[in-house]
């Protein structure tokens, strides 16, 4: 192959982030915006994983027949992987909250177009009053 798999993987991460940014900034459909945000998160995670990769290395599990020195030289770097585990879960939970908000807002506006929901700000500004007891 022309480029090694680590570099190709970095390019994949960059492509995912750019696709996600494009979707989040320029698409009008809110669900697609949110799918784009999920891709940005995936790209960032893939980037971190790729940093820990070691070409020709082994998985970071210490088996009894390995020596400590050999393991230290050949294993991939596990710290980024531990971080990504957390980051994936955070991404999924943020996504869930956003989708729940979209469902509630759909009932109010009857549309999932960002220009309708998020652009409808200005005319509300004047009649911004509290709805009742608060909670």
């Amino acid at each position: 192959m022309i480029i090694d798999s680590q570099l190709a993987s970095f390019f994949t991460a960059a492509a995912l982030i750019i696709i996600g940014l494009y979707a989040a900034l320029f698409l009008d459909n809110i669900i697609k915006k949110i799918i784009g945000l999920a891709f940005i998160g995936d790209g960032a995670n893939l980037f971190i994983i790729t940093m820990g990769y070691k070409a020709g290395g082994i998985v970071y599990i210490f088996l009894p027949d390995m020596t400590v020195n050999w393991f230290a030289q050949n294993a991939s770097y596990p710290l980024p992987f531990a971080l990504v585990l957390t980051s994936i879960v955070i991404g999924a939970s943020t996504l869930a909250v956003m989708l729940a908000l979209v469902i509630v807002l759909y009932k109010k506006y009857g549309s999932i177009k960002a220009s309708k929901i998020l652009g409808a700000k200005q005319n509300q500004e004047t009649e911004n009053s509290i709805k009742g007891d608060g909670l």
Binding site: L21, I34, I40, G41, T94, M98, N128, I130
Partner: peptide, 18 residues
């Protein structure tokens, strides 16, 4: 329950998602 809170929250989350 303030008027317009959900829209602001969604906007903030999308910006936060980037």
């Amino acid at each position: 329950k303030v008027k317009g809170n959900l829209e602001a929250a969604l906007k903030y989350m999308i910006i936060g998602g980037i």
